[in-house]
Structure formats: C-alpha cells, structure tokens
Design a protein around this nucleic acid. Structure first.
Lengths: 187, 187
DNA sequence: AGAGGAATGTAGCGAGTGCTACAATAGAGA
DNA sequence: TCTCTATTGTAGCACTCGCTACATTCCTCT
C-alpha cells in the first residue's frame, strides 16, 4: 500500500498524471481545461504547460495513462471461475461491467469514443488499447471447452459493447431482448 | 421542392433549427457555442437566446430536431429488397451504415451517447428516439420468413452498434472476426 | 395615423480559455 | 562559495464563453 502523499516531494508527469486522471474520470474529458486539471493535481496551469508543453500533448499522455489504469482495474476484477457456456460468460462479464467501480470508466469511455470518431489526437490510440485489453481479458473468461475462444470472445465483445451502448441511452431492454433471440453457440 | 431561401422571410425556431443542425452535424456538439451556431444560422447569438431562452433549451430542441432529421434520412435510405438470412440482413444494413450520407450522423452519434452517459439534458431522449427509429427500420429489413423479426432485429441492432463502435475506435476487424464465430440464426 | 408589441442590432459584462513574459527561488556541481 | 540550470510564482494577454441592458426598427391592430 503506497502511502498517499499529501504533499508529494517532487512534481513530475508521473506524479501529476494519476491526480489528473482521477479528475477526468469524475468530470469527463469535455470540460477538462488546464486550470481545473491543475487544481486537481495541486499545481498551477503554468506548471502543467511547463511539464507537458501544451494541452494537446497533456491530453494525449493523460489518455495513455488512463488506458493503463483501466488495464490495472480490469486485472483487479479478474475472477477465475470459468463459465460453462458463452451465454453464461456473457452474463457474468456484463455483471462485471455493471460493477460500480467500472462506472467512471463507462462514462469516460463514450467521451473517448466520441473523440476517436472526431480524430482527436490520442483518443483512438487510447481506445484501441482499452479494447485490446478488454479482449484479452475476455478470452481468458471464455468457457474452457470453447472450440474457438478468440472468435467467441470477439463475438461476445461486440455484443457487450452494443449492449452497453444501448444501456447508456436507455435501451437496455432492447439489448436484453435481442440476446434472447439469438444463438451464441460456436459457428 | 421548397425554394431554398437565401434570405428567409422570418427567422423562428423552425427556420433556425435546420441550419444549426447542419452546423452541428459537421462540427459536433462539443464545440457548439452560441456565436458559431448563430453564424451558421445567419443570425446573432443575441437572437438565439431571444428565440430559445438559453443555450440549454436550444440544445435540447436541436437534439430533438436532429433525431427527426435522422429518421427522415433513414426513410430515404429505405430499400425494399428483403434479404434471405439474418446474416445477409446484417451485412446489408452495415453497408448502409457505411454510406457516406450517414457519416455525419455516425460521428455525431457518439457525441450524443457521451452526453447521455453524463445525463446532459436532452441527450438521452434524442438517443432513445434515434435508436427506436433505427429498430423500426431494422425490423422492416428482416427476412420475410424470420420467425421472430422483432427479436432478431434487436439482436442485429446490438451487434451493429457494437460493430460500429469497434469500427470507430479502429477495431473493425475484431468485430468482423467475431461475427464469423457466432450463429445469428433464430433461437 | 398612431400605438404597442415583436423582432433585431450594438455594446459590453464577468468569467473562463490556452498560453507566455518575466522574475524569483532552489538545489546541485564547480 | 559561486554559478548555472531546473523549477515555480505572479501577472497578464488576447481570446471565447453565455448572457444581458439598452436602443432601435418593423409590423400589426385599432
């Protein structure tokens, strides 16, 4: 357990990024301007520009850092109970996604997707990392006897992301009903 | 064909909304501030506030209007060729979604989803309308002999949205491969 | 024609934006 | 001890933000 430093000895990118990441996870990327970020990190906008050069590269490094935090959070949530069927796997993983610890990432995630769609620098790279990590994690969650765990995980990932999106726009039931109308079994 | 008025007789919400919608479809909702919106609509920020009261209700009405435009665009793209299988239906609809005419909606869509995730006023309502309309449209695209067109359409919608999201973050191949690993046939 | 309300223009306020110039401090190497 | 560089503070610039006060024009109804 690292001793949370109320006054860190030295301020650098490495010490600033976690604090700013926490702020962004709570308040989103849209309104992330230098002065609030600096306040959250215990510095001044002046110093953020000093350490990162400008806001754009700050955001790029921050997104990369957040992708790393996301990976670590996923690893922490890793359970080793292998489900018997793909559907059971889907249900379990969706339960995990509904975990309150994942909520800030969920909300931030759509910010990142929107930024990637607009080709904002750093957004697509961060999104790719987060998806890749999620896919790795999902493969390890697949049923042991699945003949095609990689393909199955890709299928479940697609369904999960679609379901999560429909959920955030108030169409969770649509996704749930859809899942009942299909067969997730291999090939 | 309505004669595109270079100088509309009267400026009201109804005449302003399409012009602002066009601006938002091109430049996104994030940077949509009063002065650029007013310029796009041929007015002043002063008049936008006069007509809509404040920015928040302007955005709410604008999102509602855009949901309507989206419906009309979907109707225009409606083809009557019924596919034979769900998979064929999926492929055709994904081709439709790749239509350049849909591109601005796609990019804007993630803005709306992100706003809905943050509970910004008007965003979730607009997203719900757009999804509902898309579902209606999809049901009419299902194979004629499908035993459960509503359920199947919900399944395809979930898969589509997941695939589209993975596509916008550079994981289109992941979604494609996933689709090959599953059976979309009924029940 | 005159009155009165709707519509619009001009100017600006206070706050926030990214960023910078300049100076002060601190700490390490000579 | 004395530089010299890395770090930090203060102040501010030029800009945009949503919004408003005030004045003016336009149109309609009597």
């Amino acid at each position: 357990m690292s001793p949370a430093p109320s006054r860190p000895e030295k301020l650098s990118r490495e010490t600033l990024l976690p604090l700013m990441a926490a702020h962004v996870l709570e308040h989103g990327l849209g309104g992330a301007s230098l002065r609030p970020l600096a306040k959250a990190a215990g510095t001044s906008d002046r110093m953020l520009v000093y350490h990162f050069g400008n806001k754009e590269t700050l955001i790029v490094e921050l997104l990369d850092h957040i992708a790393g935090v996301y990976s670590a959070t996923l690893d922490m949530a890793l359970g080793d109970i292998r489900p018997a069927t793909r559907r059971e796997c889907f249900d379990r993983v969706m339960d995990q996604a509904a975990n309150p610890a994942m909520r800030p990432f969920m909300v931030l995630w759509w910010d990142i997707v929107a930024g990637a769609a607009r080709n904002l620098p750093g957004y697509e790279v961060a999104a790719q990392k987060m998806i890749a990590r999620q896919l790795d994690w999902l493969i390890r969650q697949m049923p042991v006897d699945d003949p095609d765990p990689e393909g199955g995980a890709r299928l479940l990932l697609t369904l999960m992301e679609g379901s999560l999106m429909l959920g955030t726009v108030g169409h969770a039931k649509t996704a749930r009903d859809g899942l009942l109308a299909g067969d997730l079994s291999p090939s």
